[in-house]
Simulated assay, not measured.
Amino acid sequence: MLSEQSTPVVRATLPVVGAAIGEIAGVFYTRLFEDRPELLRDLFNRGNQANGEQQKALAGSIAAFAGLLVEHPESRPDAMLARIAHKHASLGITSDQYKLVHQHLFAAIVEVLGDAVTPAVAAAWDEVYWLMANALIALETRLYQESGGAEGGTWRPMEIVERREETSDTVSFLLRRTDGTPTGAFRPGQYVSVQVQLPDGARQIRQYSLSGAPRDPYWRITVKRVRAGADPAGEVSSRLHEHARPGDTLTVSAPFGDLVLPAGDGPLLLASAGIGVTPMLSMLHHLAAQDPTRPVLVVHADRTPADHPHREEQRRLVEALPNARLHLWYEELATSAPGASAGRADVGALELPDGVTAYLCGPLPFMRAVRGDLLYRGLPAHSVHYEVFGPDLWLGTE
């Protein structure tokens, strides 16, 4: 909870700081990488830095956190904090790095806002930062303990056992631990980080959902190739597509992620588009093994049936669940997809059971549209959960 003396200062300065937070974030990252260039090389996603998405996510999270402290002082934004903490733990972030971020972030605030940063303003926003940072440190400490590793000790070598071309631009990899110990179960819907060494020596990290059954002896990830030319956004997926083969070793994190199925027997809606099908597959595998009678509506949208990753696997899993129904939409329909609809997904046309809990994964426009349709139909916001591949740009707007 924000202190009594800081609350009016943050409330009064939030519009000014909020309006400048994007510029502040840009200056912050410039300062940070000048001081510690290895962080851009080996920790931060160079693609998200190049397109500005990481700056937007940082700006959104700080502004959203400060706004909630002021407007809802009795509560803490646990959903937002949990999402960030899981991502940080998957990257091996440590508590001492928050001091480094604080140093460069507040230098950036002073550089951008100048004399407007009085001692009182600096103290109030310092309090905001450490309330958020200490909450994240506590959450991340617990996540590391639950994963069985020390702080930052999320990484393990894993061998590629099998490689399979799923579509023209997606490939799946089966992974096992190189020391012969069990891979371990994960919660359906979680992801892992994969660290890949690139030709320039950088060790870039990307997150991939675990797309197989949570209790299989192997983990499976499915990688969609991002074709971006000279843009670094696709450098890791391209490297995996072009070079990763059975017998190779990848550096992989423990499983993390808060988009996981709830306990109980309430009805579910699993809505995905494109590569967003991957966390839904692990959920369907879990349901088939552990809870086959649970009511499930499965929605997937894609460009064409040929672009739909794990299409037959998804269909077989749904058919194995007596109370599950599959609804498919393709922008370009083909005769190879009987029963599918043409165009974009329209959950507004579906009959939704009472008390349904929705899980969404896919491109942001798809999730915005589906979420909007669900809210319009009366589904409570707390019943709609989502997974974003990359920086969460909803943090500042939802």
Rank of each mutant, 00 (worst) to 15 (best):
L91M: 08
E166M: 00
G180W: 12
R142K: 15
L100Y: 01
E165V: 10
L143F: 03
L174Y: 01
A89S: 10
R142F: 05
I93L: 14
S168M: 14
T183E: 09
R163Q: 09
A123Y: 04
T178R: 07
G153D: 15
S147M: 14
A150N: 01
S147G: 13
E159S: 11
T181F: 01
E140Q: 12
Q103L: 13
T167G: 02
E162R: 15
V161D: 15
S90K: 13
L91E: 00
D169C: 03
E165A: 12
A120H: 05
P119V: 04
W130I: 10
R177V: 00
E127T: 02
W125H: 07
L113V: 09
Y129F: 14
T178V: 14
Q97S: 02
W155N: 03
A135F: 02
E159H: 03
A138L: 14
Q190M: 11
G152W: 11
R163S: 08
A135I: 10
L131P: 06
A150F: 00
I160W: 09
P157W: 11
G184F: 10
E166G: 01
F186R: 07
L100C: 00
M132E: 04
M132A: 13
E165D: 14
T178Y: 07
L131V: 08
L174C: 08
A107W: 01
G148F: 06
T181P: 02
F186E: 10
T118C: 06
S147R: 15
Y98G: 09
Q190W: 08
T141S: 13
R163M: 04
T170N: 14
A108R: 10
L91H: 04
